[in-house]
Structures are given as structure tokens and as C-alpha cells.
Simulated scan of single mutants.
Amino acid sequence: MVNFNGSLVAKDSNYLNHENRGLRYGDSLFESIRVVNDHIYFLEEHYLRLMASMRILRMEIPMNFTMEFLEAEILKTIAANPSVAAQRIRVTVFRKEGGLYLPDNNEISYCIETKELQDVFFTITDKTYEVELFKDFFINKDMLSNLKTNNKVLHVVGSVFAKENGYDNCLLLNNQKQVVEALNGNLFLVSGTKIKTPPLNDGCLNGVLRKKLIAILSKLDAFQIVEESISPFELQKADELFITNSIMGIVPIKKYRKKLYSTKTSLELLGKLNAAVRLQV
């Protein structure tokens, strides 16, 4: 079952039509949220990011669209689907139908979907995870690139490129040839005790896990976390590279070209991330 504007409908029903502005213009935002045993991970962070993004896109936020309302709608959707321990929730918000580039109004609709996840905790596998730079297209250095919109054609084409060439992921560049992020998450680079992640003004996604991990690292004396641009030349000099997102947690990069990376820091931070989740319960 899918939750469409508060009504539960079958997944194969025609609850969207050809005039949907998300389909026509990418006039849409989404949040991917991890839920385990009805506990919504980082709900406040996801909600605040969604509200801020809606304001930037000049969408009209309904008075009843509170964090408590969103939580209740997510749990209602989960209850209407087969019971599983861990789930991936996608909350999509789009402007209502009408208009061309200029919408008829700024009112919104939403839908909430669920998908089963295999792991209850954030985990790291032993799989060799190899990446390459994707250089066909570039991310713009602007605020729109920070938003989790449905305008992801660059990431789609990059994913096809990765599959065609046997890579697990690709790293994306902005139009000044700085490394910005991975296809599906934020990038962190470890060099000794210094950990770097690209700043938002380089064009990376304003990731919920990125923000959470920066907060965790800022409290650790063993590491220095900085938001600085990363050049492609730094990648092979790094001790570690890892990707973060709200569903997978931390994904260590094992190989980039001829360089093989350690996962020591990733494993240490994974434990602290799982601890942070348990403290929310």
C-alpha cells in the first residue's frame, strides 16, 4: 500500500496522472528514511531538511504538515504493509498539477512508500567496493544542488555508466572539477587524523547522515573534521574514502584505480553511528 495525501491506495493503482509536476518538470522533493521496528531514524533532521527545501522551492507548506503529522503518516503506511523489522521509507512531495513552468498554485501533494531492508543495524560488508570518477556531466555549485529533488538525471546516467564499466559507484565532480559526492551519498576522505568532506557551497547534497557524522566527529579528540574542497588528485593519496547516506549508513570505498584503501576509521565510526541511533530510541 502507498500513502497518497493520507489515503492508503494499492501500489498498482493510478493515483498519479500525466499532469503530475514531478513527472513533467521535476518539481518535487523526496526524503529516504530508515525505519527499524517502527523507530524512524533521524526524523527531526529529515523533517527540517524537507521543510527548508520546500521553502527554497516556494512550495506552500500546509499548516497541519508538522513533524508529528509526518511521523503518524509514515507509521500508518508501515502498518498497512507486510510487517518487517527494517524498512526504507520514501516521502515524496510535489506541487499539485496545473500550469506550465509557472505553476497554477503552490499547494503540495505527497506520497509515502515502503520497501524492506535486510539489515536492522548499519553494517559494513567485506565486499570490494570500487569507484571511478564520472566526468561526462558536472554538478553546479549552487543551492539547488544541495536539495534532494527529483532532478537526478545526472545520477541516473552516472549509475548506468558505473554498471556498464563494472564499478560499484562513481564520484561526481562540480563544474570547477572538484570532487563533490558519490552517486548516492556524501563523500568523506581520511588522511591521518584529518577527515575532509566537501562543503555545501561546492554543490554536494545537504545529507542528513553527513550532518550527523560531522556532529559525531566534532566531539572526538582523535580526529579533526573539516569541510574543504577535495581535488581528484587527493583521492589516491588518502588513507580511506567512504560514502554516507541515511539508508546504508557508512560505505567504505575499497578501491579507486590502483589504490586500495583501509576501512579502520569507517568501522570505528560505524559503531559510533549505531550507538547514536540507539540513543534516539
Rank of each mutant, 00 (worst) to 15 (best):
P103S: 07
I40C: 10
F121L: 10
I33K: 05
V93D: 10
E113D: 06
E113Q: 07
R55W: 00
T123H: 02
A85W: 12
K127G: 00
N37E: 14
L75N: 06
V120A: 06
L144F: 15
L57F: 10
E116W: 03
D104R: 06
A72P: 01
P62A: 09
I89Q: 06
E45W: 11
N140C: 09
K115I: 05
A86T: 15
E107F: 13
L144I: 07
F121Y: 11
L100R: 08
T92M: 13
F122D: 06
Y101E: 11
H39V: 14
E73Y: 10
E31S: 12
I33E: 12
S28M: 13
H39Y: 12
F65T: 01
R58I: 01
D142S: 12
S109Y: 11
E73Q: 15
I124Q: 04
Q87A: 11
E107L: 13
P62I: 06
L133H: 01
V120G: 02
T125N: 02
S32N: 13
I108V: 15
T114N: 04
L29A: 00
M54E: 00
E132C: 02
L50Q: 08
P103W: 08
L43A: 11
E73S: 09
I112S: 04
H39F: 13
E107Y: 14
M51G: 01
F134C: 01
G99I: 08
L75V: 07
D104M: 10
L100W: 12
F65E: 00
L75C: 05
S32Q: 12
T92S: 14
I89N: 09
A80D: 07
R58E: 15
L117A: 06
I139G: 07
F122W: 04
V84Y: 06
I56C: 05
L70S: 05
P62C: 04
E107W: 09
E44I: 05
Y41E: 14
F134V: 01
E130N: 00
V35R: 04
M63T: 14
E97Y: 06
F69K: 08
A72G: 04
K76Q: 15
V93Q: 11
R49A: 01
A80L: 04
I56V: 14
N105K: 02
M63W: 02
L100K: 11
I89L: 08
I108N: 04
F42P: 05
E71W: 05
H46C: 12
S83E: 10
M67W: 08
K76T: 14
Y110C: 08
S28V: 10
E68A: 15
D38Q: 10
K141E: 12
R55Y: 00
I108M: 11
E31W: 09
D38V: 04
I89F: 10
I40T: 14
G98C: 10
K96G: 13
G98L: 11
A86H: 13
L102E: 08
L75H: 07
P103D: 09
K141W: 03
